[in-house]
């Protein structure tokens, strides 16, 4: 029964996501408990923040707690790895688990470009623990660190210019090369998922710079 719940949990997330992607937003007839946990935010203003960084800038360093335990600092990768920072707006929202599960099966792509992926939201650790757990197979974990930018609230998102006026972050991708320089910024329409293709091209570019 436990396994079934997990399976259906993942399924319902996908179902809800696609209903929204299709622009329908129609109520979906799945009556499991998990469906009710996805908060329907409706269609949002595509972007709602003031850019603070541009390509070529030095990426601001930060240290944040990780859901996997301990802390992660951007500076620990300098000179060793390219870094992709994926800000997503908030846990348990539509387009919900809809981006990182794709990254979770794309480790090869990141490794190929000597890149480390870091996921960041403004949620607290317990929320992120529950949310990210349902993205994986039972007993497995996401391969990349997920960091909590909860307190001071949205501090890192703010320094990266992606904190929206309602306190959640944009759906944004930053690529930072081994020198610590920002080589790619995609502050995406919050209602849409960025295609992996663009990120793959950005990673190729990061290695050239």
């Amino acid at each position: 029964m436990k396994g079934w719940n997990r399976r259906v949990g993942g399924m319902v997330c996908c179902l809800g996501v696609l209903a929204l992607m299709a622009g329908g937003g129609a109520a979906y007839g799945q009556s499991t408990g998990f469906t009710d946990n996805i908060y329907p935010v409706g269609k949002l203003k595509p972007t709602d923040s003031v850019p603070r960084l541009k390509v070529g800038d030095v990426a601001p360093d930060f240290t944040l707690p990780a859901v996997q335990g301990g802390t992660v600092s951007l500076s620990q990768f300098k000179g060793r790895r390219n870094v992709v920072i994926s800000f997503v707006p908030a846990a348990w929202t539509p387009v919900c688990s809809d981006q990182w599960p794709g990254y979770n099966i794309s480790r090869k792509l990141f490794d190929k470009h000597e890149a480390t992926l870091i996921g960041i939201t403004v949620d607290n650790i317990p929320t992120l623990y529950a949310w990210t757990k349902q993205m994986c197979n039972p007993g497995e974990k996401l391969w990349f660190p997920v960091l909590s930018d909860f307190f001071p609230h949205g501090g890192v998102a703010s320094r990266y210019g992606v904190l929206r006026s309602d306190g959640v972050s944009e759906r944004a991708l930053f690529v930072i090369n081994k020198k610590g320089i920002v080589t790619y910024i995609d502050v995406h329409d919050i209602n849409q998922r960025p295609f992996l293709d663009a990120l793959a091209r950005a990673l190729e570019e990061a290695n050239r710079q």
Partner: peptide
């Protein structure tokens, strides 16, 4: 299916 769908991945 979807590349991003955990249930599709699991099955």
């Amino acid at each position: 299916f979807s590349f991003y769908c955990p249930h599709c991945q699991r099955t």
